[in-house]
Simulated scan of single mutants.
Amino acid sequence: GYWPKLRELLDRYGILLIADEVVTAFGRTGNWFGSRGWGVKPDMICIAKAITSGYFPLGACVVNARIEEAFRNNKDMLGAIFHGYTYAGHPVGCAAALACLDETFKLDLPGNSQAEGDYLLARLRDLQAKHETVGNVRGKGLMLALEFVSDRDAKTPAGLKYVGEVANLAYENGALVRVAGNVMILSPPLVIERADSDAIVDAIEAGLSLNRLDPAS
């Protein structure tokens, strides 16, 4: 795969692999870290968001032993980690992170993300088979997307009005979705249950079935 080959290439030339996992860490993709889902161990990982479930603003950078040793063995200030800033190590933020991580372990949210993500992906692909305007369905864990087209063979993107109407009708039928261009993005809570997954797909199905606009509009 791409990521293992990239890891191999970077190791060959002594280049660090830094993973931006602000969105993907702590279960979103069905693994504790998104990069681990591809069998890759980064040298540095940037994390935030789900570390506190958004209850408190907190971010962090995690490094491996190789990076840690480089800082620890440095003999001058060029290798110092300056961490005495006003908001660094905020006790409330750290307490929120510990509580959220405890719940993530207790509820096995990465496992739930994988199970419900697989189920959602299968149901969304059923929609693709039924509706010509669904050109592509993709996802990993509970990070999914539908790409709308006006011509499936030519892969012509659907118009913004059409996609917006699908989203509006889905909302009227119980699901709040995010639209970016001709793509509908689904990032449901990691505690989602089967009934919730069905409700999301049923709402999108309604949005597609009730939409009377020209897909090119």
Rank of each mutant, 00 (worst) to 15 (best):
A154G: 08
L146N: 02
L142R: 00
K155M: 12
S150P: 06
R123N: 06
L146K: 01
E132K: 15
H131D: 08
E132L: 15
L146F: 05
G135K: 04
G135C: 06
V149T: 08
D153Q: 13
D151A: 04
D153H: 12
V137H: 01
L127M: 11
A122E: 05
G141E: 01
E147T: 15
K130I: 08
R123H: 09
N136T: 08
K155A: 13
R138N: 06
L146R: 00
A129N: 14
S150K: 11
D151E: 04
K140A: 13
V137R: 00
K140H: 11
L144F: 05
A154H: 10
R138C: 06
R123K: 12
D151W: 03
G135N: 03
D153L: 15
L144W: 01
G139H: 02
F148Y: 10
K140L: 14
R123F: 03
F148E: 03
K155W: 14
L127Q: 07
H131S: 11
R123Y: 03
L144H: 03
D153K: 14
R125Q: 14
G139I: 02
D153M: 14
L127K: 04
K140G: 10
G139C: 05
V137N: 00
V149E: 00
R125N: 14
A145C: 12
R125C: 12
M143L: 15
R138A: 11
T133G: 05
D151R: 04
V134N: 03
Q128P: 09
D126Y: 07
A122W: 00
L146Y: 02
T133N: 12
R152S: 09
R125D: 10
D126I: 02
R138L: 08
L124P: 04
A154D: 10
L127H: 06
V149H: 03
E132W: 09
V149D: 00
G141N: 03
K155F: 13
A145H: 06
A129L: 13
A122M: 02
M143K: 07
L146S: 03
V149S: 01
V134S: 05
L144T: 00
E147Q: 14
N136E: 15
A122I: 00
Q128V: 07
T133A: 12
D126N: 08
S150Y: 08
G141W: 00
R138I: 03
G135V: 06
K130W: 13
R125I: 04
L146I: 07
L144N: 04
R123Q: 09
K140D: 06
G141D: 01
Q128K: 14
N136S: 13
Q128D: 08
G135E: 02
Q128C: 11
V134C: 07
S150D: 09
L142I: 07
L142N: 01
E147A: 09
E132Q: 15
A154R: 13
R125H: 14
A154Y: 11
L124D: 04
